[in-house]
Amino acid sequence: MNIINFTPLSALTGGLLIGFAVFLLFAFNGRMAGVSSIAANFILKREQRVDNSLFLFGLILGPTIYSLSGSKIESIITNSIPILIIGGLAVGIGTRIGNGCTSGHGICGISRFSLRSIVATISFILTGIITVLIFGI
């Protein structure tokens, strides 16, 4: 195992910001910022559709605002279309059946010391590692 491309400082800074965003939504609006739940509720439920769409719109605005500072954002996707389709379906179905994703279980859930979320996070990190081991990057 070699360690490459490690960017601890920017990762920690971004993480602190994400934590603050999650805190805002909880302290003011009483809600958990689990992105898969917000995105799924946005298309499947009428309740709080405006709030959900504003949150998602903000999420899209984030990188746009960052790029206004003149910094370049790297986002490289090398997958073929069939892999993107299978990946998208697996993420969509999996996060709904498991009630959460990296934000809902990984950040919100672990912060609440929820055993359920800790088990979920270990599960998706493990299958993620196995998938990369089999299919490569």
Binding site: I60, I86, V91, G98, C101, G128, T131, V132
Partner: peptide, 29 residues
């Protein structure tokens, strides 16, 4: 449900490197 769902999510995550938050944020690109 939790185990099946989370495991399936991990497979999709490992295939494309995208989870819901970054996927939606990357609409901006």
């Amino acid at each position: 449900k939790l185990l099946i769902g989370s495991s399936l999510f991990g497979v999709g995550w490992g295939l494309a490197g995208l989870c819901p938050g970054p996927a939606i944020a990357s609409i901006s690109f």
